[in-house]
Each structure stands twice: as structure tokens, then as C-alpha cells.
């Protein structure tokens, strides 16, 4: 947040434009194309936008390398799917429940790990992500293992049937927009500045009286909550989920979106999601789908090489990685580094 906020008018303009595109232009195009498959792609782009913006908060803004985001997405998806299939609950209930479940898991993960030096924290998120994935895969009585879960009953909300492609699109668009707005307020406020201080130099933030442990815990939990919300959207709109939707590759895909867009930039995270979901789908149209992962890899490689700060980022990905290995008071006997070289 700057002093006089000269960017405020511009950012309002961008917001208005974005809303027009999401709620008018894209639906009109989708309706004229008339293929339900394209609606699926559009939903997927929005769901991944929410995933990447939620990771943006914790990785781009707070600087905590999150390598297991897909697992929280999965916790939300499974929570929603199980509530929907076993208790016939509609998304009005499963969606907040999925967010809370994923947020709770994130909270429990962060509680013992937040005092770790960054790199160990990153490794912990990787481990937890894999662990949750293994649970989804092997807890067959509940998750049906690799077979996944089918959701019948479509998308019901407050008694309305939103199962048709267009209403489903508008529902996803609304939930994602509101969620991203909340994440936007968190990252573009003094609270967001406190998180940035954490990313830049957490000991220094300590010296300013910032309760860094609490901030890490909060941002990680909120980020997990919105990943869970994205999971519920995915479960209800796709109608079928399986563990493969939430494995390590997906975590890396989301991380790639944040890095490609630029660490610390919320619009960047959205652009990253649109590109990394949209481009491969476009290629599929041209029967080049097999090269999907290669293309994603090349885009990412090029981005780190030629755009150190991503498309519009605040800090470079290499810096972030370097900082993960930086000073840490949590290794016993290594309290040094405060002014002493």
C-alpha cells in the first residue's frame, strides 16, 4: 500500500474490466461456442486461479515455499465429495465445510512446523502433501482409493439446480471472485505488508515487533482454507475426483503459476493460471496435448531465465529459494547472523 495510492484508480479500472470479462464476455463466447467441454475448461481455469492466488498469499507474499498445496485442494475436494455422496448435502454446505476442513488441516500442519527454518518448512509441506495423497490413495473404505468418487446429483445451491453448464459457470465465477477479493484485501493491506516483511527478512520483522510465528500460521491456514474451497468447486463441477487430481505434480503446477506470474503479484498469479491451464488446452485442440508437460516446463524454465521476477512479480524466484536457506534461529547453536558475519 503506497502513501497516496496512485494505483488505486487504475486498479479499480482493472477490477471492473476483469469482472466484465468474467461475467459477460467469457459467458457470451462460451454460449456462442455451445460446447460443454469449453465450460469445463473455463471452470478449471477459475479453480486454478483460486488455487494459485491462495498460494500467492503464502508463497508470493509471505515467502513460505509451499510444496504441498494440491493436498489441501484434495482435502477440500474429498470433504465435499464425501458429504455430498453420503449425506446428500448441497454445495451451500459442502463448500464452507471443505474450506474449514482444509484450513484446519493446514493449521495443524503449520502449528508444529512454523518455527522451522524456511527450507525445513518447505520440506515439511512436501512431506505432508505426499502423506495426504497416500491417504487418499490407500484409505480405500472411505476414499475408494484410485477409483475415486463419483458425485451424482449435480450442483444444487439453496434449492436451485445449477447443474447446467452456464449456471455452474456463474456459480464458480462468483465463488472464485469473492474468494480472490478476500485474498486481495489480505495481500494489499498493512496486514499484507507484515507478511511481505516476513518474506523479505523474518528476523528483521521480529525486530519490528511483528509476531512472525502467528503470521505464518494465519497465512498458511487461510491459504489452505481457499484451496479447500477450490477443491469443493472442482468436486461438484467435475462430478468425479480421484487422487491423481491432487498429487505432487499438481502442487508444482500451482507453484509454477505463481512463479510464472511473478512472486508477490496477485494479478500475476491469475495470469499464470490462465496461461498454464489455457495454453495446454489450446494445444490439445491442435492435437498437441502430449507435449503439455514439456511445454509447461519450457515456459517455466524460460520465465525463470528471462523474467527473474516472473511476468509482473515483486521478488525473484531465485531470491526466494536462496532465502529458504537463509538465517534461522531454530537451529540450535546457530543463533548467529544478527549483525555478526
Amino acid at each position: 500500500m503506497s502513501v497516496s495510492d496512485p494505483g488505486r484508480g487504475r486498479s479499480l479500472l482493472w477490477t471492473a474490466l476483469l469482472l466484465i470479462v468474467v461475467f459477460a464476455v467469457v459467458p457470451a463466447l462460451l454460449a456462442s461456442a455451445g460446447r460443454s467441454y469449453l465450460y469445463q475448461v473455463a471452470n478449471l481455469i477459475m479453480i486454478f486461479s483460486l488455487l494459485s492466488v491462495s498460494m500467492h498469499l503464502v508463497t508470493g507474499v509471505a515467502g513460505l515455499l509451499q510444496l504441498g498445496h494440491a493436498a489441501f485442494y484434495g482435502v477440500g475436494a474429498y470433504c465435499a465429495a464425501l458429504l455430498a455422496t453420503h449425506f446428500k448435502l448441497s454445495i451451500g454446505i459442502t463448500l464452507p465445510a471443505a474450506g474449514l476442513a482444509a484450513g484446519l488441516v493446514a493449521f495443524l500442519v503449520a502449528l508444529p512446523t512454523m518455527r522451522l527454518v524456511s527450507i525445513y518448512f518447505a520440506v515439511a509441506t512436501l512431506g505432508i502433501g505426499q502423506m495426504l495423497y497416500v491417504v487418499m490413495l490407500n484409505w480405500v473404505p472411505v476414499t475408494k482409493g484410485p477409483n475415486g468418487i463419483l458425485l451424482f446429483g449435480g450442483l444444487q445451491f439453496l434449492g436451485f439446480d445449477l447443474s447446467k453448464p452456464a449456471p455452474a459457470y456463474f456459480f464458480v465465477a462468483t465463488v472464485v471472485s469473492v474468494s480472490i477479493y478476500v485474498l486481495h484485501r489480505l495481500s494489499h493491506s498493512y496486514y499484507g505488508n507484515a507478511l511481505r516483511a516476513l518474506r523479505e527478512d523474518d528476523q528483521c520483522a521480529d525486530a519490528m515487533g511483528i509476531d512472525t510465528a502467528r503470521l505464518k500460521l494465519e497465512s498458511f491456514t487461510v491459504s489452505g482454507f481457499f484451496a479447500g474451497v477450490a477443491g469443493a468447486l472442482w468436486a461438484h463441477t467435475a462430478g468425479y475426483i480421484s487422487p491423481a487430481d491432487f498429487n505432487f505434480n499438481v502442487s508444482i503446477l500451482i507453484l509454477s503459476m505463481v512463479v510464472l506470474g511473478g512472486l508477490g503479484s496477485l494479478p500475476g498469479a491469475i495470469v499464470g493460471a490462465v496461461l498454464l491451464i489455457g495454453l495446454p488446452e489450446l494445444l490439445r485442440e491442435f492435437k498437441a496435448g502430449d507435449y503439455r508437460n514439456i511445454i509447461i516446463g519450457l515456459v517455466l524454465f524460460g520465465a525463470i531465465l528471462f523474467l527473474p521476477k516472473g511476468l509482473i512479480g515483486e521478488t525473484s524466484a531465485l531470491d526466494l529459494v536462496r532465502r529458504q536457506f537463509g538465517r534461522g534461529r531454530s537451529i540450535p547453536g546457530h543463533e548467529g547472523g544478527v549483525g555478526w558475519k
Binding site: 500500500m1 505488508n193 507484515a194 511481505r196 523479505e200 527478512d201 519490528m208 511483528i210 509476531d211 487461510v222
Partner: peptide, 27 residues
């Protein structure tokens, strides 16, 4: 030790933020 990727104002804001002990709702 400053915060290099933040503006000059945002840097000093952090000092005030710490002292005010703001929470998430302030956003």
C-alpha cells in the same frame, strides 16, 4: 537490513504495524 523488494513507505509501515499489533481483520 531493510526490506529491498518493498517501497520506502512500506518499509517504515512495518515498524508501525508491529507496534500496533494488527490482525487479519484490519485488512
Amino acid at each position: 537490513r531493510i526490506f529491498p523488494n518493498m517501497s520506502v513507505f512500506d518499509n517504515v509501515s512495518v515498524g508501525a504495524i508491529g507496534a500496533e499489533r494488527i490482525g487479519m481483520l484490519s485488512a
